[in-house]
Computed example of a mutant assay.
Amino acid sequence: MTVVRQMLTTAMATIALGTALTVTGGATASATAQACPGSPNHAANGEGYGIVNGTHSLRTGPSVDCSATNNLPSGTKVWLWCYVVNSSQNTWYWVREENQANSGWMYAGNMTIHEYDDNGNGRFEKRHC
């Protein structure tokens, strides 16, 4: 009976450890997915544009911890699609480089933002992602 009890105790501990590892691994993957979500859901172009101040990279998510993709030189015009405020309370925009297919996230502080009434309704409307 003691051998059976030891086997059951070992099996239960293995299951508990496996469950804990799965939960922890899932939480880490989920946190990473939230931090660097890639392209947001957006149905239409936003309003406004930005002019890049200095050389800055587009990123895969709204954080400096996300991978850099394309470097944009100072003076590059980017079209604003939508914005988010990240966990550090910084505003990031999903942008597209003018006359290019390059899109990604850019920190609002890395560009001068210009309000532009793209749809002609008389007001500048920022879209949240």
Rank of each mutant, 00 (worst) to 15 (best):
M1N: 10
T2W: 08
M7V: 14
L8V: 12
T9A: 14
T9R: 08
T10I: 12
T10M: 07
A11C: 07
A11G: 07
M12A: 15
A13D: 03
I15Y: 06
G18W: 09
T19S: 14
T19Q: 09
L21M: 14
T24H: 08
T24G: 04
A27P: 02
A27Y: 05
A29P: 00
S30W: 13
S30M: 07
A33I: 00
Q34F: 02
A35I: 00
A35C: 00
A35G: 00
C36Q: 10
C36K: 03
G38W: 07
P40I: 10
N41V: 11
H42Y: 15
A44R: 12
G46M: 03
E47H: 06
G48C: 03
Y49Q: 07
Y49C: 09
I51H: 05
V52R: 12
V52N: 04
G54I: 03
T55K: 12
S57Q: 05
L58I: 01
R59V: 06
V64P: 06
V64N: 14
D65E: 15
S67E: 15
S67D: 15
T69C: 03
N70C: 00
N71L: 11
N71V: 01
P73M: 04
P73I: 01
S74T: 06
G75P: 01
T76N: 02
C82K: 10
C82G: 06
C82D: 08
C82Y: 08
Y83M: 11
V85K: 06
V85A: 04
N86D: 15
S87R: 04
Q89F: 04
Q89L: 07
Q89W: 01
N90A: 05
T91D: 00
Y93A: 00
Y93H: 06
Y93W: 10
W94E: 02
W94I: 01
E97I: 00
A101P: 04
S103D: 12
W105E: 10
M106V: 05
M106P: 01
Y107R: 14
G109V: 05
N110P: 02
T112F: 05
I113G: 04
H114Y: 15
Y116H: 15
Y116V: 12
Y116R: 13
G122V: 08
R123H: 09
C129I: 05
